[in-house]
Simulated scan of single mutants.
Amino acid sequence: MKTYKSINLEKVFNKTMVNKRIHDGIVYMEDTTGEFSWNKGYGGKELDSPMLMASITKLLTTACILILQEQGKLSLRNKISEFLDQEHLSGLHIYKSKEYSFDLLLSDLLFQISGLPDKFEEKKSSTKRKVINQDFSFSIHELLHWAKELKPHFIPRTNGKAYYSDLNFDLLGEIIEKVNGTTLAEAYQQLIFIPLGLKNTYLPQSENDFIPHIYYKDKVLNRPMFICSCRASGGAVTTAREMMIFIKAFFGGKLFNKIIFDELANYNKLQITMGPISYGGGYMRITLGGLLMPFMKKGELLGHSGSTGSFAFYYPQKDIFFVGDVNQFANPSLPIRLSIKLALGV
Rank of each mutant, 00 (worst) to 15 (best):
I7F: 05
F13L: 14
H23R: 14
I26F: 03
V27M: 14
Y28M: 08
D31L: 12
T33M: 08
E35F: 07
E35D: 14
S37N: 09
S37F: 02
K40C: 11
K40E: 06
K40H: 05
G43A: 05
A54T: 12
A54G: 04
T57W: 04
T57P: 08
L68I: 06
L68H: 02
Q69T: 10
G72W: 15
G72V: 12
L74E: 00
R77Q: 12
R77E: 10
I80F: 01
I80L: 13
S81P: 06
E82L: 09
F83L: 02
L84E: 00
Q86V: 14
E87H: 05
L89F: 05
S90R: 13
Y95A: 00
K96H: 12
K98F: 02
L104I: 15
L106Y: 01
D108F: 09
F111E: 02
G115T: 10
D118E: 04
F120E: 06
E122H: 08
K124C: 11
K124T: 13
S125F: 12
S125L: 14
S125R: 14
K128W: 09
R129F: 03
K130W: 01
K130M: 04
K130C: 02
H141F: 06
E142Y: 05
L143N: 07
W146Y: 12
W146V: 03
E149N: 13
K151D: 08
P152V: 07
P152L: 07
H153K: 15
I155L: 04
T158M: 05
G160Y: 01
Y164S: 15
S165Y: 00
L167Q: 03
N168H: 13
E174V: 15
I176L: 02
G181T: 06
T182I: 00
A185W: 01
A187G: 09
Q190K: 15
L191F: 06
I192G: 05
P195V: 09
G197Y: 03
P204S: 03
E207F: 01
N208G: 04
N208F: 02
I214D: 00
Y215D: 07
Y216F: 15
K219C: 04
N222L: 12
N222F: 13
F226D: 01
F226S: 04
C230K: 14
C230W: 01
C230S: 13
A236I: 04
V237N: 04
T238N: 11
R241E: 10
M243F: 06
M244P: 10
M244E: 00
I247D: 00
G253N: 09
G253C: 11
G253I: 11
L255R: 01
N257P: 04
N257T: 06
N257G: 05
K258M: 03
F261M: 10
L264V: 14
N268D: 13
I272P: 13
Y279C: 01
M284S: 12
M284E: 10
T287S: 13
L288E: 04
L288C: 06
G290W: 09
M293A: 09
F295S: 09
F295Q: 11
K297W: 00
K297Y: 07
K298I: 07
K298E: 12
E300D: 07
L302E: 00
H304Q: 12
S307V: 15
G309I: 10
S310T: 15
F311L: 07
Y314L: 09
Y315K: 07
K318Q: 14
K318A: 13
K318S: 06
I320F: 10
G324I: 08
G324A: 10
D325W: 10
S333A: 03
S339T: 07
S339P: 09
K341S: 15
K341A: 15
L342G: 04
L344H: 11
V346D: 02
